[in-house]
Write a protein that binds this DNA or RNA. Structure first.
Lengths: 266, 266
DNA sequence: GCGATCCCTTATTCTAGATCAATAATCACT
DNA sequence: AGTGATTATTGATCTAGAATAAGGGATCGC
């Protein structure tokens, strides 16, 4: 609703974080500015509007709610909340997690700009995990009932949303394989390469970026402890494959990282 | 196409396996008979036709191809095959797997009657895994382009297919948690309980069934070795929670199994 | 019905990564 | 700028489950 009065500070933070992340140091990725329309959003070719024509994008625009930016740690929704919407990340990043009975969380996913959050709630009508902002972030909310209605009118949108969900399924199955048979080093290398190509997708450097999540988040996601993640990072650094400095990371030898994960070099 | 001439033998096998699996010993689950329509299929309330009215089911019926039954080991499709269809299991069971570079497979999923196979191919237009019959099985093939067209006409179908995909996503994320933080015993117990409720869903006994897959399949699925799966089975048996005899299994203490997995008793 | 192959179990050893512990660095708040 | 809280690193043990090995059963193909 009222999103205007925080813009000054937001833009500063935004520009700061993106300058660090971006090799060229000049381009700006989808600012936190809430007024931007799908038609003019830098992410429109990766996000929901993909494959839609101008009129269709306008129709989509109508149902998208551009919420007030989220601060680090803010929740987008919590486990068991009623499912109403899916969300598209406009800037920043998010993590999804579930709480085990022992109280400690297990991270089920990370979300970067242009990616869709919340599809786990579609079937049961309740979100099956909690999702939290990892940094100052902004989001587009798409009420699902309206998305369904619109998909019904726009075959392109239906087709594309099926594809987005199918992609999520394929990705989840890859992670299944990763967790069920890869070593700690293989998991970590694969994770870094995955981040790399996701940053590349939004035109950020694939070799130099900030990790928005903690080592502990990475560990919970990969089924490893913090200590192991940290150890693997230093080991990879010693081997000259990466350069880590706290949250800043540079992948200095993509080929070697790919070799760790498996064969395919694409 | 020509499915008639094998029916005699099929029905026998079918009845045999289902008698063993089924407590009541009388009801018959969706026979291999290929001529059955969605309207008269015993699974129509669990499978795609759910939430469709009679006219709609008839329309769905038109696009469903009822293929010749598959023998144990037959492939439904292979990794990288062009994606054309999703499949609904009518009888029998299937496993999906990917081959690692070292040649050994890793199982990514098992599919029982009423469940949908192949959604991992939707996004990339190629199947990301291979899927193989675990026993004599029959399948309904649903050409995806036609399913999309029909979904566009029938909001109910679109809604339901979104739900099916959402369910797959939620399930995959649960497995993510399972693999990243549960012990061998917890994984195994959870796996057995999962099978139990899936059998219950198709009105078979939730406490007594045949495992259609090998110990090795289970191990690959759960990220464990065959030996560990075997050991856990005998351990659970010694504790009196299950009764295993080769592929035959009885869950003799559901409560205790649930207690191993976590708290929730529902 | 018989051999070959695959599947399952059990015992023994070994290791990757967890756990425990302690310190250092960084961040968030006043 | 200072203080407490979170986050990261590194080292020393410990253990769950992998790897190896080997025998007995089931199942399949002929």
């Amino acid at each position: 609703m009222n999103t205007q009065n925080i813009q000054g500070k937001d833009s500063m933070l935004d520009e700061l974080s993106l300058t660090i992340r971006n090799d060229s140091g000049t381009q700006k990725l989808c600012p936190h500015n809430s007024n931007i329309s799908c038609a003019s959003c830098r992410l429109n070719e990766l996000c929901l509007p993909i494959a839609l024509n101008k009129t269709e994008i306008h129709q989509l625009d109508e149902i998208v709610e551009r919420n007030r930016p989220l601060k680090k740690g803010d929740h987008l929704y919590r486990q068991n909340d009623e499912f109403r919407s899916v969300f598209a990340v406009r800037s920043g990043s998010f993590k999804s997690y579930v709480l085990s009975d022992t109280g400690q969380g297990r991270v089920t996913g990370f979300y970067l700009p242009g990616e869709i959050i919340g599809m786990d709630g579609i079937a049961s009508k309740h979100y099956s995990n909690s999702t939290q902002s990892l940094e100052h972030s902004s989001i587009c909310e798409i009420p699902f009932s309206q998305l369904e209605k619109l998909s019904h009118q726009l075959p392109n949108l239906q087709h594309h949303f099926f594809a987005i969900m199918g992609n999520e399924i394929a990705k989840d199955q890859q992670i299944h394989t990763l967790l069920s048979s890869y070593s700690a080093e293989e998991r970590t290398a694969s994770f870094l390469l995955g981040l790399s190509s996701r940053y590349a997708r939004v035109s950020l450097s694939p070799t130099r970026f900030l990790l928005p999540m903690t080592r502990s988040d990475i560990g919970e996601y990969l089924g490893l402890t913090v200590e192991t993640v940290s150890r693997i990072f230093t080991a990879l650094q010693k081997k000259g494959l990466i350069e880590v400095n706290n949250r800043e990371i540079e992948l200095t030898d993509l080929e070697a990282l790919r070799a760790i994960v498996g064969v395919e070099t694409c």
